[in-house]
Write a protein that binds this DNA or RNA. Structure first.
Lengths: 230, 230
DNA sequence: GAGGATCCATGCGTGGATCCTG
DNA sequence: CAGGATCCACGCATGGATCCTC
């Protein structure tokens, strides 16, 4: 996605929220026009397009560095596809899993915890019956894990990491974890990343990533005082 | 440089030499046409173009891996610009200098020695009065360092590496070395690569590379039984 | 619907070298 | 003209996610 227009990062949280309010109800096509970007026909070959569009119009800074999207504000932006108002359609990618450095790490300093510390959820209509250009942004909201949510996610994370430490990659399925899961994150099933076998030998396997299950993110859009999509 | 045509690597040294003989006397334009590549107006913004053209038409394999261009033959291809027949115009880049791993390395296992073990020198007319597309390939020849040449290069290399080990980057100038020298190898003078200060602390400096001085490569094109450019 | 498979953009490193100025 | 500065191509890794098939 070529950047045709450079937008300054918002200097305050208020400014970010003000910007994101202007997106609510607008179509992807309307928004893309403001930064002179073409809308692809569909996302089959442009899977990250919506997220990258949002980054641009909001003035996100990180590009592909492992920093929060709005570094100075400590806020991570996540667009989230909705099959219908209030119902997230897909799981949400959080971070890659490092299959080599499994020792000496803990929840407090983990990438997952950092990424989820303060998330700006931006819902986007994604029912297949609506063409990409006509899909609308919904009402975004800032979220930080409640004590209870963090407890469950942390437990999931620790359970997964424990298995990773023993090197039993085969035993780690996507079925593990209540809110958090591990899934492939690669160009294809033949991709190889660094890892260690269960005998501690350097090896190569399919790269994985941490994801939040959609069954969990759905709860964020249910009653509880948070805003909903449109 | 988009690859419009895939050419198989030569399976034998003879086949490689046969291919390269067909280049002698041809213009860059004629050769580029055979693989459907456009010739840039000049090399100011396409400095590696000639070398990459040669790689393609000869079926070199390495692209940007640190392997010989013709891996199975153990042969490294170097195009070399000639200001006039028999006179190399520029120094020749050999390899990058690793500014972090300076201990435990020696000449026998060095990248410089490996790269220079067996070089196919392919001269190319490069007088400024001739436009790029009209420049001709000359007669290439295979070269391995003579005992004496290797001795000088090895001494240069060891002298430079010794200074690197002490971390005194400031003391290492391009003036060091009889045949081999060290020079910047970067996008620009602000580029930073990893290094260690003279106190052993991780640091950052301008990346460097090893080059063969043109005063040396000129001697390769003087009398001695090797072919010359046209 | 869940798990496994896949796709684009962009930064950075490495390999290909030549440009340019005192 | 030597030393310092610079430029493109392309692979690989990371960050953005959604697709697709039981």
């Amino acid at each position: 996605m070529k950047q045709y227009k450079f937008i300054q990062p918002p200097s305050t949280e208020q400014e970010l929220l003000a910007r994101i309010e202007t997106l609510a109800g607008k179509t992807l096509s309307q928004v893309a026009l403001t930064v002179n970007i073409d809308v692809p026909e569909n996302q089959t070959t442009h899977k990250g397009w919506t997220g990258q569009l949002a980054e641009q119009v909001l003035g996100a800074t990180a590009s592909n560095r492992s920093e929060p999207d709005f570094q100075h504000l400590g806020i991570e932006l996540k667009t989230i596809p909705m099959s219908k108002p209030g119902v997230p359609k897909e799981s949400t990618y959080i971070s890659t899993v490092n299959l080599t450095k499994t020792s000496g790490i803990n929840w407090e300093t983990s990438a997952v915890r950092k990424k989820l510390a303060r998330v700006l959820w931006l819902p986007v209509e994604s029912d297949n019956s609506i063409s990409l250009k006509h899909r609308r942004f919904g009402n975004a909201f800032l979220w930080s894990p409640s004590a209870n949510q963090e407890k469950v996610i942390r437990t999931d994370w620790e359970e997964i990491m424990e298995l990773l430490c023993t090197g039993d990659l085969d035993k780690i399925s996507s079925s593990l974890g209540t809110y958090l899961q591990i899934r492939p994150k690669a160009a294809n099933s033949k991709s190889l990343g660094n890892s260690y076998s269960n005998e501690g030998i350097r090896s190569s396997t399919l790269p994985r990533g941490f994801y939040l299950r959609s069954s969990f993110t759905r709860t964020l859009f249910e009653d509880g005082g948070e805003e909903r999509q449109d």
